[in-house]
């Protein structure tokens, strides 16, 4: 039992060390797919230590709450692996570290909770949470290069290239310079249609695709007047109009 706990402690220690990488690398960012792989390894290490810490469950199952925890935490881990170029957490090394430590806690809880509930369930939850991380590599924020058969598919790819979230303040300024003549100062409409509640008609991706390739009489300002970054920011601003 003691040896088991020592091994569990070592595995957890190694996992936490692994989670410290963003602080050591000081913000040098990995491509999304590799980042998911790193997350999957952390989740696996944390889950394994959780299983080992939980020990063998004797005398049947121990409380529904452990099963509920083991079931819910993988979904939370997937949310934390939100791959929007890691805008919220990962632009700052300590924010990134916090996210990694949270993933370690969730992985640990999956393994520990499952194994506390019933022998074998920790392994199922641990393998499950690792598999989720690995599956994410295939397409969660990762888009393979495919022929653009429908126009809108170009937008996500190009957004992935520019990275980050739209800067709506900058978008508002660009809108005032280039779009307000037809659409009104705050998008109330004029010569062009009103853009109020555009969010209910077009998603951000669709709005970007439209600005890049508009139908006449709307002028095509990309790539001449507006850059890819400008398009993203204007679309981000338009999505806020109410």
């Amino acid at each position: 039992m003691k040896e088991r706990r020592v091994i569990a402690g070592l595995v957890l220690f190694a996992t936490v060390l692994f989670a410290l990488v963003p602080v050591i690398r000081r913000g040098a960012e990995l491509p999304t797919a590799q980042h998911h792989f790193v997350h999957a390894l952390m989740l696996a290490g944390a889950a394994l230590s959780g299983i080992l810490f939980a020990g063998r469950t004797r005398g049947g199952r121990r409380g529904a709450v452990w099963l509920v925890i083991a079931t819910l935490v993988p979904a939370l881990a997937m949310l934390l692996m939100w791959p929007s170029k890691y805008a919220y957490f990962e632009t700052h090394p300590y924010g990134h570290l916090t996210e990694h430590l949270a993933l370690v806690v969730l992985g640990f809880l999956a393994g520990f909770g499952g194994e506390r509930y019933a022998a074998g369930i920790g392994w199922a939850a641990g393998i499950g949470i690792f598999a989720m991380g690995m599956l994410a590599i295939g397409g969660y924020g990762v888009v393979r290069s495919v022929p653009n058969t429908i126009g809108i598919a170009a937008a996500p790819t190009s957004r992935a290239n520019i990275g980050g979230l739209p800067n709506q303040t900058r978008g508002a300024a660009l809108f005032a310079q280039n779009c307000a003549v037809c659409h009104g100062t705050v998008g109330v409409g004029g010569e062009g249609p009103s853009l109020k509640n555009e969010r209910s008609r077009k998603s951000l991706v669709q709005a970007e695709a439209w600005i890049q390739n508009p139908a006449p009489p709307m002028p095509k300002l990309y790539p001449g007047t507006l850059s890819l970054r400008d398009v993203a920011d204007v679309a981000g601003y338009v999505e806020t109009l109410r």
Binding site: W82, S84, G138, G139, Y140, G141, A153, P156, R159
Partner: peptide, 9 residues
């Protein structure tokens, strides 16, 4: 919406 998914995946 900036998080794009692979359609085949």
């Amino acid at each position: 919406p900036s998080v794009a998914l692979d359609p085949l995946w």
